[in-house]
Amino acid sequence: MEEGIITAIRVVPLEHYVLLSFLLFSIGAAGVVFRRNTIIILMCLELMFNSVNLLLTAFSAHHSDPCAQVFVFFIMLVAAAEVTVGLSILVMMKRNVDSVDVNQLNRLKG
C-alpha cells in the first residue's frame, strides 16, 4: 500500500502540476478581462483561487509539508467569505443600476 501511494505521488512530476496550475490561472485571468457579466467574473476569480490551491497541494505532497495543506484550507475559508460578500455586492449592484454588466460601473472614469 505504501509502495502504491509513493508510486502514485511521485509518478507525476511536479512540473506538470505547476504548469497545469499556471494554465488554469491564465485562463481565469483572461476570463476576468474577457467577460462583462459580473457573476462570471466572480467565477473566474474562484478559478484562479483554485489554481493556487492546486499548486500549494502539489508542493505539499511532493515535499511532505502539511502546512501547505493547512494553508489551502484557510484559503478556502477566505474564499468562501469573499464569495458571500461579493455576491451581496452584486445583488446591490443589480438593485441600483439594474444590470449585472460590469461596464455599467464606470463612475470612476477620469
Binding site: 485571468a29 478581462v33 474577457f34 460590469v102 461596464n103 464606470n106 463612475r107 472614469k109
Partner: peptide, 17 residues
C-alpha cells in the same frame, strides 16, 4: 494619463495583468 482611468474594471484588470 487621464485616458488611462477608463473606469472599467476589466481594463484595470488587464493593466494589472
Amino acid at each position: 494619463f487621464r485616458r488611462l482611468q477608463t473606469g472599467y474594471v476589466s481594463f484595470h484588470m488587464l493593466a494589472m495583468l
